[in-house]
């Protein structure tokens, strides 16, 4: 059974019909890439899954339970964690306080331990632990946003364009990190403009176009697909 099932969701911003019946599924342990051009509805899809938005039609099932009407903060304790578009670090909180907020729902004693784990994954953050997050570089903020999302010990991690705005050298690092997180057993739904990199680490992928799923296939096939090559990989 799939960990996440998105069944024909329609999501609106007021009158704007952003998602027009999006369906897909994510199995436990997979890395799924969601690609598409600007305004295709990728962010809206993630916002609907994470509970920030409610679909007007259709449903989201997670772990055998309908979650489309569950509040975002409740979903975190169910194991869904999201790195929002544009990182969304708390600029006035220190690096360490940001990570503490990632572990907000937890009461167990292993938080200190996991903080160390986050610092070993991103040694840069350790050097800057007492610094307010607003003064970090873009790449460091992205590391912080990912580390923070992991602090809740998610089963499903939603990543919205983690490579956005990063220098090419850093982009490789981000995808390596995502791969490492997946190897730890976290299921990943990855939204990316950088389809080339996303499809390299993904198991399967979906192409969104104007609020609908246009193509769905394994990552390997998508890399060979003519339309995908032309439109999203920039290969003629």
């Amino acid at each position: 059974m799939a960990l996440l099932e998105v069944n024909g969701i329609h999501t609106y911003y007021g009158n704007i019909h952003a998602l027009k019946g999006v369906s897909f599924e994510v199995d436990t342990g997979e890395i799924i890439a969601l690609i598409g051009s600007n305004g295709a509805g990728k962010t809206t899809t993630l916002r609907t899954i994470s509970g920030l938005m409610t679909p007007r039609e259709g449903s989201v099932n997670y772990d055998g339970e309908v979650i489309s009407n569950t509040r975002a903060d409740m979903l975190v304790s169910k194991g869904i964690s999201m790195v929002p578009e544009g990182r969304g670090v708390f600029a006035k909180l220190t690096v360490e306080e940001n990570l503490d907020m990632g572990a907000y729902i937890r009461r167990d004693g292993a938080i200190k331990e996991d903080l160390k784990g986050a610092f070993s994954l991103f040694p840069r953050l350790q050097e800057r632990r007492k610094q307010v997050a607003g003064t970090l570089s873009g790449g460091e903020q992205q590391m912080l946003a990912i580390a923070r999302a992991l602090m809740s010990k998610p089963r499903l991690l939603l990543l919205d364009e983690p490579s956005m705005g990063l220098a090419p050298v850093l982009v490789d690092g981000v995808f390596e990190t995502v791969q490492r997180i997946a190897n730890e057993g976290v299921t990943i739904l990855l939204v990316e403009q950088n389809a080339h990199m996303a499809l390299q680490i993904a198991d399967r992928g979906y192409v969104l176009q104007s609020g609908e799923v246009a193509i769905s296939d394994t990552a390997a096939n998508l890399q060979k697909n003519e339309t995908v090559k032309k439109t999203y990989l920039g290969i003629d």
Partner: peptide, 14 residues
């Protein structure tokens, strides 16, 4: 402080 800075991201923290 987190809520005062960004309510939406605060919700994503649970």
């Amino acid at each position: 402080r987190a809520v005062s800075e960004n309510k939406e991201v605060a919700r994503l923290m649970g």
